[in-house]
């Protein structure tokens, strides 16, 4: 099974052309300089933005095809997303943020909370902060809650946008293993962190100047990075990252 995107995304003045981008199961890292459309790609997959043209299939089902008038809205797609800017619900406690998706799927309050506490434990969040509201949490704690919230609904496709940016280095290793063990069949990792790419990604997609310039395994992409930015990112950084993780 795959996610197939063959089309064009437009967002305030620029477009991303993705000609037959195919994403397989497992962890796929999407890399590229800021503003090349990494997040927009994630938003299109999640159903937060419409394709300009072309079509998008998830597991063989068309979820977006403007010419055919097909658009499956975000809430009906099997896609979860952890946002770069967290987007936690300020009026809910951490645990209720995580339980939110389950409650909307009809799970009763008690079961949703107990499920939420299991996920919060897995992201290593101390139980004493579960009852706090987002405004009282640190950046790293918020990021863990945001990740837990996306994991809790067990989506087929999990999109994580800069998942570990605010987490300190000791926490990262643990969260990385959590991501690699995730039950989601597709994990799409939008990242700036070479260590994420080196340790988690089975496949790498490189975006540059509004199109997909390279795709393949880490080795393949390193051999043919497709743009200067990726070359420098993959070259120096990944070697350093591998050394760091391996050492």
């Amino acid at each position: 099974m795959t996610i197939e995107l063959d089309g064009e995304l437009a967002r305030s003045g620029w477009t991303l052309q993705a000609e037959l981008l195919e994403i397989g199961e497992g962890v796929t890292a999407v890399i590229g300089a800021n503003g090349v459309g990494k997040t927009s790609l994630g938003r299109a997959l999640a159903g937060l933005d419409h394709l300009q043209q072309g079509r998008l299939l998830i597991d063989g089902v068309v979820v977006d095809e403007p010419e055919a008038g097909v658009f499956v809205p975000a809430e009906l797609r099997p896609v979860g997303m952890a946002f770069q800017d967290y987007r936690l619900f300020g009026h809910l406690k951490a645990i209720d943020n995580v339980a939110f998706g389950l409650r909307r799927c009809g799970v009763d309050r008690r079961s949703a909370r107990s499920r939420a506490s299991q996920v919060l434990e897995r992201v290593d969040l101390d139980p004493h902060v579960w009852q706090k509201r987002p405004a009282a949490l640190s950046g790293g704690q918020r990021q863990r809650v945001a990740l837990a919230r996306a994991l809790a609904v067990e989506p087929d496709v999990l999109i994580v946008d800069e998942p570990l940016a605010a987490v300190d280095s000791s926490g990262r290793a643990r969260l990385r293993s959590l991501l690699s063990e995730s039950p989601a069949r597709y994990v799409i990792l939008i990242t700036h962190d070479p260590v994420d790419v080196a340790t988690l990604a089975q496949e790498v997609v490189v975006l540059d100047a509004g199109s997909v310039v390279s795709q393949g395994s880490l080795a393949e992409v390193t051999a043919a990075p497709g743009c200067e930015w990726a070359a420098s990112f993959l070259g120096a950084n990944v070697i350093a990252a591998k050394a760091q993780v391996g050492g």
Binding site: V79, F83, F100, V153
Partner: peptide, 26 residues
């Protein structure tokens, strides 16, 4: 932003109004 986050968690249009927008602007 919060509306979008709720949508990716499976909340429909009415649900997002009741459970996200209204509590946020309380």
């Amino acid at each position: 932003e919060l509306d979008e986050a709720a949508a990716t968690l499976g909340a429909g249009a009415w649900s997002r109004i009741v459970h996200v927008a209204l509590p946020t602007i309380r």
